[in-house]
């Protein structure tokens, strides 16, 4: 397998029915991402960048066109198979963290392991190790509302890492953070990329996009030429 062919979108469109009209979120996207790349998907609100992330992350499937992840065609997989791929190969980080509000930091990090069928003792050990890694070893028993924004995003990153995925997808990960916490989080992503992961940041902020190796601009559902 050619490294260039790690994540391949070919003529991908996505149409959302919205009442009587259809919203054309993606209009024929062609994109290749190499394994181990650090990529930013840059575009204004409504440009379709989140939709690309959802498709790359197997949360959503294209209306037409194909997506191959590591040689496997994603279109045509059923929701249970897509979930399996998300669980084992992909970690998500969201702008608003998306932590379970009534679960502790540690329990949140354990969540992917629950669905992978890991037993409780191993889950605990693995979650604690990753939390140490993101610098939250002292906050494991805290609920999300007892943590700062930066700490919450670290918990979310720990959760995305716990299953050892090779791909990290982050949607505006610094959007809800002050500049100092944002910088720390970006540094964390740089480190995770340096460790060999494919990291894809979705953002509207050019200065953040510049921190990556490659910027893919998207506007009105189409990739803009570099």
């Amino acid at each position: 397998m050619d490294d260039n062919q790690f994540m391949v979108l070919r003529d991908v469109t996505k149409v959302y029915p919205m009442g009587d009209t259809d919203v054309q979120a993606l209009r024929g996207v062609n994109l290749q991402i190499r394994a181990g790349e650090f990529v930013a998907i840059l575009g204004p609100s409504g440009s379709g960048k989140s939709t690309i992330m959802h498709i790359l992350g197997c949360l959503d499937t294209p209306t037409s066109g194909t997506y191959h992840l590591d040689g496997v065609g994603i279109q045509g997989l059923d929701p249970n198979e897509l979930a399996e791929i998300r669980n084992s190969r992909i970690g998500f980080v969201f702008q608003s963290f998306h932590l379970l509000p009534r679960a502790t930091a540690c329990e949140n990090v354990e969540l992917p392991l629950v669905f992978a069928g890991v037993n409780a003792a191993d889950r605990r050990t693995m979650a604690e190790r990753v939390l140490e890694q993101v610098g939250l070893g002292h906050r494991m028993r805290h609920l999300p509302n007892e943590l700062s924004g930066g700490e919450r995003q670290r918990v979310a990153i720990a959760r995305s890492l716990v299953n050892g995925p090779s791909i990290l997808l982050a949607d505006e990960p610094t959007g809800n953070l002050d500049s100092r916490s944002g910088a720390e989080i970006l540094a964390l992503f740089e480190q995770l990329h340096a460790e060999g992961r494919t990291v894809i940041l979705v953002t509207h902020d050019e200065s953040i996009a510049q921190r990556t190796q490659r910027v893919i601009s998207i506007f009105d559902g189409k990739i803009q030429p570099d």
């Binding site: 979930a83 998300r86 969201f94 998306h98 969540l111 992917p112 995305s160």
Partner: peptide
């Protein structure tokens, strides 16, 4: 939705 994003099967 969160659970599904982190890999919960339907």
């Amino acid at each position: 939705g969160i659970k599904m994003a982190v890999g919960a099967k339907p």
